[in-house]
């Protein structure tokens, strides 16, 4: 999926930056609130566009933003994540293992806000592995203020060089052949 095709799918403007927001398949109340509170500045002043997976439970409460800003494409769940990633200049996400695999596979810079309530705080451990590779910036939800969030987003999107570095780093940690490895293991067990 190329970027321009993805952009037309979401009816977004190629001349302004795009952020894809993923709070997991169920959505993240924390990320949704943080983004909602920052929209006046990010969408209103900086003209940033959003592809936003809200989660089915929060969708109705957030739907009014779509009529307020034409630059927001709001979805309870996105089936074609390939387009949502292809369109993005930056991804803001929780840090579930599969979301991180997808981000790495698609080579996208990311701002990760791990869910601290996850067992043994494993999302933070997942997220740190991408951060260590230089592919992501990790923000802790306990300390995160709206001002810091806006600052990080603005800073990242204005630094094209850094974004490219992060894209390359993300690609370098991707393991696109993992499903085949698992199938190899399955066949070995069945035929042994």
């Amino acid at each position: 999926m190329n970027r321009s095709k993805a952009l037309s799918k979401f009816q977004l403007d190629p001349d302004h930056p795009i952020i894809t927001i993923i709070g997991g398949s169920q959505g993240s109340l924390f990320i949704n609130s943080m983004v909602s509170e920052s929209l006046d500045y990010l969408a209103g002043k900086l003209n940033i566009q959003f592809i936003w997976q809200t989660g089915p439970t929060h969708f109705d409460d957030l739907q009014h933003f779509e009529s307020k800003y034409s630059s927001i494409s709001l979805h309870p769940f996105i089936d074609h994540m390939d387009s949502a990633y292809a369109a993005a200049d930056l991804v803001i996400s929780r840090a579930g293992a599969i979301a991180l695999s997808e981000i790495a596979y698609c080579g996208k810079p990311s701002l990760l806000i791990p869910f601290h309530g996850a067992a043994a705080d494993h999302q933070t451990k997942n997220a740190r592995s991408l951060e260590k590779a230089g592919a992501a910036i990790v923000l802790s939800e306990n300390k995160l203020t709206k001002e810091r969030f806006i600052h990080e987003v603005e800073q990242l999107l204005s630094d094209r060089e850094k974004l490219v570095e992060m894209e390359n780093a993300a690609r370098s940690v991707s393991t696109p052949d993992a499903a085949n490895t698992i199938v190899d293991n399955i066949l070995e067990l069945v035929y042994q």
């Binding site: 089936d79 074609h80 994540m81 293992a97 599969i98 695999s101 997808e102 698609c106 393991t175 993992a178």
Partner: peptide
């Protein structure tokens, strides 16, 4: 255990 590394999602990366 076997080490499989990260698996990709099935969401049609074409």
């Amino acid at each position: 255990i076997s080490f499989s590394r990260e698996i990709q999602s099935a969401r049609n990366y074409r």
